[in-house]
C-alpha cells in the first residue's frame, strides 16, 4: 500500500565515493515494502529541488541498530521516535534505508540531511522483483546471479535477502569505477555463495567491467540453469542482457529513469518495450522498475545518468 508520509531521518551515514546510507523512520512503509520496490523522496522546506527523487529501497530493518547508533551520535531530534508495536505478521521493520550516490542537485541536498530532519516519503512504489513470479523462476533455476553496476547495487539487497530465506543459491557480480564505488559488499556477504568484484581502475577485484567476469563465469558454468537479476547503468545492463541471451539464461532488469511523480501519471519515465502495453512504452515507475530483459528494447543508450 503506497502512502505519502512525512518521516524523520534517523541517520545519514557517509560511505566511500560520495555514497550515503539514509535511514528513515517509516514503519508503515517499511512493512509494506517488497523486494525491488522504490521510494520517492521529497525534500521539504525551501528546497531548490522541486520534484521528488526516485530511490531504490535498499533495506528495511527494525528500529534498533542503525537508529540507536544515530540516537547516540546526535543529542537532538530523536526523542519523538519510539519503537512501534509489531504488526500482525511479526514484521518489526520500522526503518527504510536508501543507499544513494551524490550525482546532482537533489542528491547533494539529500546528503545534507541530519538526524531529526523531516523528508516526504512516497513509498513503496512499483513492481519489484515480483515475489511470486520470480521465486517460481528462481526455484527452477539452480542459482541466482545478481549483476550490479555502481549504485545499481541498491536494488538488489532485499531480493537477495528474500531469496536466501527461500534457500536459493546466489552469486553477486558487482562492478564500479573504483573500489570506492563498491559500497555495501559486506551487507551481501551472508546471502551469497560467491562475490565477484570488479573496478575499472583495478583498485579492487578484477580490473575492467564487471560483465567480463560475468562472461567467463557464464562460459564455464555452461548447462547450468540460472536466473540473472541486474541493476546498473544502461551500458552495463545492455551488455548483461546480451550475455544472458547468448547463454540462453533468463534475465530480470531493474531500470531507472528520471521520474516526475512515481505514480504513473506524468509518463516521464516511460521506456521503449516490445508489444502493445501502454503504446510501445511502459512506465518504469508502474509497470517496472523490474522488467524481463527480453521485453525491453535495448537499441541505444537513452536513459540519462542524472
Amino acid at each position: 500500500m503506497v502512502t505519502d508520509e512525512i518521516v524523520i531521518v534517523t541517520e545519514n551515514r557517509p560511505l566511500t565515493g560520495g555514497h550515503f546510507l539514509l535511514s528513515l523512520h517509516a514503519p508503515r512503509q517499511a512493512r509494506s515494502t517488497r523486494p525491488g520496490q522504490f521510494a520517492m523522496v521529497r525534500l521539504l522546506g525551501d528546497s531548490s529541488a522541486l520534484l521528488r527523487r526516485p530511490m531504490s529501497i535498499y533495506d528495511v530493518r527494525p528500529l534498533h541498530g542503525a537508529a540507536e547508533r544515530a540516537t547516540r551520535s546526535s543529542a537532538d531530534g530523536m526523542t519523538g521516535i519510539k519503537p512501534g508495536a509489531a504488526s500482525g505478521n511479526g514484521d518489526r521493520s520500522e526503518l527504510i534505508q536508501l543507499l544513494y550516490k551524490v550525482v546532482g542537485r537533489g542528491t547533494q541536498l539529500m546528503s545534507e540531511l541530519r538526524p531529526g530532519d523531516e523528508v516526504g516519503l512516497l513509498a513503496p512504489l512499483g513492481h519489484g522483483f515480483f515475489e511470486e513470479e520470480y521465486l517460481e523462476q528462481a526455484k527452477q533455476a539452480g542459482e541466482i546471479w545478481h549483476v550490479a553496476g555502481g549504485i545499481g547495487i541498491a536494488a538488489l539487497l532485499l531480493p537477495a535477502k528474500s531469496l536466501a530465506k527461500a534457500g536459493i543459491r546466489q552469486r553477486l557480480f558487482f562492478g564500479g569505477r573504483t573500489k570506492e564505488d563498491l559500497v555495501g559488499v559486506e551487507d551481501f556477504e551472508p546471502f551469497m555463495g560467491e562475490i565477484m568484484l570488479a573496478s575499472e581502475d583495478g583498485s579492487r577485484g578484477y580490473r575492467g567491467y564487471v560483465t567480463r567476469p560475468l562472461e567467463k563465469a557464464l562460459d564455464s558454468g555452461y548447462g547450468k540453469k540460472l536466473l540473472l537479476m541486474a541493476c546498473g547503468p544502461w551500458a552495463m545492463l545492455q551488455a548483461t542482457v546480451e550475455l544472458a541471451k547468448l547463454h540462453g539464461q533468463p534475465c530480470l532488469v531493474s531500470m531507472e529513469n528520471r521520474m516526475g511523480c512515481g505514480l504513473g501519471v506524468c509518463l516521464g519515465c516511460s521506456i521503449r518495450v516490445k508489444g502493445e502495453g501502454h503504446g510501445s512504452y511502459e512506465r518504469v515507475c508502474t509497470e517496472g522498475p523490474v522488467f524481463w530483459a527480453d521485453h525491453v528494447i535495448w537499441e541505444k543508450e537513452s536513459i540519462p545518468k542524472v
Binding site: R258, S270, I303
Partner: peptide, 16 residues
Amino acid sequence: MPGNPSPRIYETESGM
C-alpha cells in the same frame, strides 16, 4: 499515441 523517446523530462529552477 506512443509518445516520445526517453529522456522526456528534466527539472529546472522552480520548474520542469
